[in-house]
């Protein structure tokens, strides 16, 4: 295995494009190192991105959103008051990735590129309508976050392409987001089901919403039917039930060691209700 410490994204992309074998980028490393240690994936070339200027930065975009560098760790994100105030759901999703120790290393981009349908940070990003900056041999492009994962362990990134940053849009007024997952323990598990809801209100009424589900399909999915079930409502019981039903209908999970398809489908509905209520409360200005 060759270790490269890239000094710029173009250098990283160049090394990757020219590498004949298996290439991995090192941002947080919490997946790459596990795969390396277990012998699952031993890259021929490992390209460390952490020394590239700006990768640890979180900055305001001109539109009032946030641009999060590729090497910003979960712990750094969780300590950022601005992002936390605007996008608490995104922050809490990332905050659920692994232990305190893993938080010291793991990154949003890494969680996304690992391609796991159960990635805790991804539903929140999808619900928030986040976009990623992809840099490759042919320059940079902006891509909606939900277009990156294409299946378990797979992404749409081409040879030599890598993520440079993740951009969250401006929060805007009367908005709120939330993420919750179901796990058998209280910590340290992979999500059996994850759900993020992002919504904005006009008065008491939900004006717009995005609902994303994790671990119920080959990728994190955006569920427009679930959003439609609550838009135009004040999240009354009927709306919540319609939301849960839409979430269940959208779920097409597998049964595995972490949960049965039947259980996952049921819990998708339960979580959708609970998360929508949390997001709604935040949109109304309830802190936390």
């Amino acid at each position: 295995m060759r270790y490269h410490c890239a000094k710029s994204f173009s250098e990283a992309a160049e090394i990757a494009a020219g590498a004949p074998g298996i290439t991995r980028f090192l941002a947080g490393g919490t997946d790459v190192l596990v795969q390396l240690r277990s012998g699952l994936v031993t890259p021929d070339d490992l390209i460390d991105l952490k020394q590239i200027p700006g990768v640890h930065d979180i900055s305001r975009t001109p539109e009032g959103g946030w641009r999060i560098g590729v090497a910003v760790s979960g712990a750094e994100l969780g300590e950022h008051a601005g992002v936390k105030a605007d996008w608490p759901g995104v922050v809490e999703g990332m905050g659920l990735v692994g232990s305190t120790q893993v938080q010291g290393r793991a990154t949003l981009a890494g969680n996304l590129c690992n391609g796991s349908p159960a990635a805790d940070s991804v539903p929140g990003l999808v619900a928030a309508e986040a976009r990623v900056t992809v840099i490759g041999p042919n320059g940079a492009r902006e891509v909606p976050v939900e277009e990156i994962p294409t299946g378990p362990g797979k992404t749409s990134l081409g040879p030599g392409e890598l993520i440079a940053a993740i951009t969250l849009p401006a929060r805007g007024a009367a908005g709120g987001d939330a993420y919750q997952r179901f796990i058998p323990r209280t910590e340290m598990d992979i999500a059996v089901v994850g759900c993020a809801v992002n919504l904005t209100l006009t008065g008491e009424t939900i004006a717009a919403a995005r609902v994303a589900l994790g671990a119920v399909a080959p990728t994190v999915i955006l569920v427009p039917e679930a959003a439609a079930a609550i838009v135009g409502t004040a999240l009354d019981d009927a709306a919540l039930e319609a939301l849960a039903a839409a979430a269940r209908a959208a779920a097409s999970p597998i049964s595995d060691k972490r949960g049965t398809a039947e259980f996952r489908t049921h819990v998708a509905g339960v979580l959708a209700r609970r998360v929508a209520q949390a997001a709604y409360a935040r949109a109304k200005g309830d802190t936390k």
């Binding site: 090192l26 490393g29 919490t30 190192l33 240690r37 490992l46 460390d48 120790q101 893993v102 290393r105």
Partner: peptide, 11 residues
């Protein structure tokens, strides 16, 4: 705070 098993020595 990190797990040193998830950090490469070269890092």
């Amino acid at each position: 705070l990190v797990c040193s098993c998830l950090v490469l020595g070269v890092e």
